Simulated assay, not measured.
Amino acid sequence: MIVLNGASSSGKSTLGRALQDRLPGTWLLYGVDDLVRALPPRLTSPEGIEFSEDGQVRVGPAFRAAEKAWMQGVAHTARCGVNVIIDDVFLGGPAAQARWQEALLDLRVLCVGVHCQPEVGEAREQARGDRVTGMHRQQAQIVHQGVQYDLEVDSAASTPAALAQLVVARLNHP
């Protein structure tokens, strides 16, 4: 298991795809965006998940219940022998990491912090067109505060392939 944590538009998904290209065997890439897309539209509410115009994200109890089930499902996939890369945004910092640690308790996990400068993240948000402008800036610090990593990378400092090589090297030599 590889868990990638970083703010929205920090380069996690791109790194995940580069890892899939570089790592041998089958590696499935699951992102928190997949969970959000799977939610019924009625859960875009205080009970589920809300995205404010300034880029803040708030989650409620219905989202947390769905998230817990999703995490357990992803962990079960890994327990069935399929390699997994997680692309997540630890909005709750160490509490979010603890939820993954609970789900992945008996699995070998490499936790990677993915960073980039706020202006780079904002430019990516605008280029993508499917993000609220300001989301990266809102999340850039809070998603990393108090989180313990095995490796941290700057997605603006190198190519996805080079960053993937760093992650693979760390995976092979813990």
Results as ranks from 00 to 15, higher is better:
residue 13 S to H: 06
residue 13 S to C: 09
residue 14 T to E: 08
residue 15 L to T: 04
residue 16 G to T: 02
residue 16 G to H: 02
residue 16 G to D: 02
residue 16 G to R: 00
residue 17 R to A: 10
residue 18 A to D: 07
residue 19 L to K: 08
residue 21 D to S: 15
residue 21 D to H: 15
residue 22 R to A: 15
residue 23 L to T: 13
residue 24 P to L: 06
residue 26 T to C: 12
residue 26 T to A: 14
residue 26 T to Y: 10
residue 26 T to K: 13
residue 27 W to S: 05
residue 27 W to T: 11
residue 29 L to K: 10
residue 30 Y to L: 15
residue 30 Y to A: 14
residue 30 Y to P: 02
residue 31 G to M: 06
residue 34 D to T: 10
residue 35 L to W: 09
residue 35 L to M: 11
residue 36 V to T: 14
residue 37 R to F: 00
residue 37 R to W: 04
residue 38 A to I: 09
residue 39 L to P: 09
residue 39 L to N: 12
residue 40 P to Q: 12
residue 40 P to S: 13
residue 40 P to N: 12
residue 41 P to G: 07
residue 42 R to E: 12
residue 42 R to K: 01
residue 43 L to S: 08
residue 43 L to A: 03
residue 44 T to R: 13
residue 45 S to N: 14
residue 46 P to N: 13
residue 46 P to D: 14
residue 49 I to E: 01
residue 49 I to D: 01
residue 50 E to F: 02
residue 51 F to T: 08
residue 51 F to I: 05
residue 52 S to Y: 14
residue 52 S to K: 11
residue 52 S to A: 12
residue 53 E to A: 13
residue 53 E to V: 06
residue 54 D to R: 11
residue 54 D to P: 04
residue 54 D to C: 04
residue 55 G to P: 08
residue 55 G to Y: 03
residue 56 Q to R: 15
residue 56 Q to F: 01
residue 57 V to S: 11
residue 58 R to Q: 04
residue 59 V to M: 04
residue 60 G to D: 05
residue 60 G to E: 03
residue 61 P to T: 05
residue 61 P to N: 07
residue 62 A to Q: 09
residue 62 A to L: 05
residue 63 F to P: 00
residue 64 R to V: 07
residue 65 A to S: 14
